[in-house]
Design a protein around this nucleic acid. Sequence first.
DNA 1: CTGTTAGCGCATTCAA
DNA 2: TTGAATGCGCTAACAG
Lengths: 338, 338
Amino acid sequence: MPVSLKDVATLAGVSIKTVSNVVNDYPYVSTLTRARVKAAIEHLGYLPNLTARNLRTRRTGMLALAIPQLDNAYFAELVRDVVDVARGHGYTVLVDNTDGDPGREREVLESVGTRLVDGIIFSPLGLSPRELAGYPGSTPLVMLGERVSRWSADHVGADSVAMACAAVSHLISLGRTRIAAVGHQPRRWASTSRQRLAGYRKTLRAAGLDIDPRLIVPTPMYFRRHGVEAADALLALDSPPDAIFCFNDPLALGVLRRLHELGVRVPDDIAVVGVDDIEDGRYSVPTLTTVAPDKRVIATRAVGLVLERVSGEVDGPPREVVVEHHLRIRESTGAGSR
Amino acid sequence: MPVSLKDVATLAGVSIKTVSNVVNDYPYVSTLTRARVKAAIEHLGYLPNLTARNLRTRRTGMLALAIPQLDNAYFAELVRDVVDVARGHGYTVLVDNTDGDPGREREVLESVGTRLVDGIIFSPLGLSPRELAGYPGSTPLVMLGERVSRWSADHVGADSVAMACAAVSHLISLGRTRIAAVGHQPRRWASTSRQRLAGYRKTLRAAGLDIDPRLIVPTPMYFRRHGVEAADALLALDSPPDAIFCFNDPLALGVLRRLHELGVRVPDDIAVVGVDDIEDGRYSVPTLTTVAPDKRVIATRAVGLVLERVSGEVDGPPREVVVEHHLRIRESTGAGSR
DNA sequence: CTGTTAGCGCATTCAA
DNA sequence: TTGAATGCGCTAACAG
């Protein structure tokens, strides 16, 4: 049923090679034969078998993108951008949802070498730095998220510590002094929480504010419901905070929701800041102040870096790309714009 | 650099076939040789070249999933589920974000025959039924979303008309009489808006209520900002509605946000209902009443249907799967649960 | 139980 | 400018 190069060649009365030349827009083909071949292709409805081509060319035109949670708006937006950018380069994207599970993340690394994709963009969460470092490295790989020490792949990310500083500084500038931090994950390797906590601590110290451990709330994951739980925990304290820095937007939205239920006024009683700038935060009640990494740039650079390796264009040591971030002040800390 | 079957065979002192047998867990291999081969594989770090295997077996173990907007939470959640379910069947998923653009959707259909994926799950938006009907059909394809007449592929979806009825009936049961509909798309092929509008009209008529065309608000797309605009339009009317049925949740969340800004009380002044049951609606202020299609089932069935075709297990006429839906009553129409 | 032999469909030498 | 032959790495008959 499927029609191959050979079929086209037979019909057009030329050799396989000629058809191949036409298909690949090889210049040295006479106008006449080209026309004849094209007619045959059209007539037969020929489509190249990409699997065969991939085997031969050792390129698949596919990139793997492995992220922890596709249903987190941040990643959904990132995936969309990566898919778009990759498409612009003629690449398609194979998406992997790891749930931050070490086992699945390990598979991502191990699947390398099967030559199914030309490159990998990987946002790890559950794997230890040690395991990450064990990456064989036969296929170009770009890391997203926090930078892992001793790791030797290209990396694209925002400066998590600086983002935390921006958020906390903003709260301090508002005159808040009891600032909570939500999203600590002591048991996770994912250094995101460490970095943000570090930024939080650093900023408080620099401002001469106390660091009250009771204001540092751990959460099992970064979903809205964990924000709800964190808000409960914070309001149960003898002296609750007057501001809450959440390590991502879903947590902040959960906090916002719970504060509303408890009748706490935001930002009057408690100001709230998140990180990621997902769309929901621009329409929530109140709208959410957040620190926005430039997602589009992350996607663009990540794809750019892998493809430079894939093409062999670049072959040096690991590269480090730090993207910009911006504080978006909205209602949850006092301003009113969207 | 890459090590092939042959290398392993040489090292183990056996034939290529034997190695292949070991790799594929073919039973008839003596324990001894198996061990020797495994050792060689381990030693060399052999990994099968999937491209070659795919060419040979005419299977790629990949499914394409084409949807309009990955950054719409409904689709993000759906993609996650599809990826999960596919993974359970040993399949990986290639994601395509079409933006509902007819050109890109056409490419999805045309890419069929390149044998890069074993099956396709497709949620079209911009293509006309005519074009959809022109699908060659060489690769198994399952359609998501509204059912397209004259179309001859398997289809999985919820009953859009019934979902609209559920939403509107609920509003009527609350005593509302001026019920608006947001999300009409007269210029789109996508029949989703038609179906929901049909359900809306039918339900109003059945209840003996007037259908006021000014209460039917068209939107260019289904994003939050379009909900904001729709709310503005509705409140500018001489006699505004006392309830708003939005064709999806993002629209409803935009409406909710704008009503809040305008000081309209929800649900007291205006009740709001959406469709899709995305997570945001469970944490918004107020929480959003919505009609929830069973996404998990949609994903499960969609993957199931394609794979049955892929395996050749099923080879009959198009199958139609209609998944359940449930009304989730929350604060935006008066109840308080999450 | 294991080795030999053919292709899968394509791109690519090398000749002509 | 085009054709014939080769092999990418693997699985599948078919022998042995």
